[in-house]
């Protein structure tokens, strides 16, 4: 039960509960679409709505056929295969050079910090269609259009802002006396980096990596322009499925992707807490 201050009137109490109901509705709005596709993906029929059998919880109303279809159809298989070989590599590229840059950016002596930051964050801000069109022409010119390398590079650029943001966030409040202490005790810069800085920024690096991964894994506009049919990814296949023939297999894919996002989100949450603990920002 909520405790109300002494001056609270009857109106206040009513409003308090009404307010909670409003917030509850907003959360319902946020979660409803995601939750509703989970049961529908086990639909035994070819429909996108709850059949009477499903509402009666009749086992005949449910089946795994859409999941079977997902794991048997060559189109979805190729899409899955491509998604899982593009996203990790793109992530690796953006994390490796992104982390270096974030370390540079968070040093006090960094020149032109604001301008450089603005450029590095821009892939997150520029409308995707513009990025996609620009890369389409440019990659065609240098022969990377429709190639694996082309998509990986394009996705790596999109992941960069996330790595920069998360890693610089872990570095703010970083106590530089630690590196000085390490140096004065005789450790070289490389050793200092791995023994002192790395453990502290690691949570930021990993959560940046997860952001970069999901960005690439979820990206479709660039793939549509820079990719080709043999490089189609899960989002590409979903996009054409949604535009062409809406098949319930899409709901099965969607459910799998939601499970994946829950996993990734959990990782990020745990990392964030660990990072805050390590830097002593929160108990």
């Amino acid at each position: 039960m909520a405790r109300f201050p002494a001056y609270a009137s009857g109106w206040d109490k009513t409003w308090h509960y009404a307010f909670r109901i409003i917030c509850g509705l907003v959360f319902a709005f946020l979660m409803f679409p995601i939750l509703v596709i989970l049961p529908l993906s086990f639909n035994a029929g070819n429909l996108f709505t709850f059949t009477p059998e499903m509402l009666r919880f009749d086992p005949d109303g449910y089946s795994l056929r859409h999941y079977r279809n997902l794991f048997q159809s060559p189109d979805w298989q190729i899409a899955m295969y491509n998604s899982f070989r593009i996203a990790p590599v793109a992530t690796l590229v953006s994390v490796s050079i992104g982390t270096l840059a974030a370390i540079g950016l968070s040093q006090r002596h960094m020149p032109f910090k604001q301008a450089i930051m603005a450029i590095l964050i821009s892939p997150m801000i520029v409308p995707l269609i513009i990025s996609a069109a620009g890369m389409f022409f440019f990659y065609s010119r240098i022969g990377l259009q429709g190639t694996y390398v082309g998509i990986v590079l394009a996705h790596a650029v999109l992941g960069v802002p996330f790595v920069i943001i998360t890693v610089t966030a872990t570095l703010t409040g970083f106590d530089h006396s630690l590196t000085r202490a390490s140096a004065s005790l005789g450790a070289g810069p490389v050793k200092t980096f791995f023994k002192i800085q790395m453990p502290l920024i690691l949570p930021g690096v990993i959560s940046g990596a997860l952001f970069a991964f999901i960005t690439s894994f979820d990206e479709v506009v660039i793939v549509l322009f820079v990719g080709s049919a043999d490089l189609k990814t899960l989002p590409w296949e979903m996009f054409s499925g949604l535009r062409e023939q809406l098949s319930p297999t899409i709901l099965a894919v969607a459910t799998v992707l939601v499970a994946l996002s829950v996993m990734l989100l959990t990782c990020v949450e745990l990392l964030r807490r660990r990072s805050q603990r390590m830097r002593g920002l929160e108990p």
């Binding site: 509703v36 979820d218 479709v220 989002p235 979903m238 996009f239 894919v253 969607a254 992707l257």
Partner: peptide, 8 residues
């Protein structure tokens, strides 16, 4: 995924 939400 953006496409999951749009599909939903």
């Amino acid at each position: 995924s953006l496409l999951v939400r749009t599909a939903a």
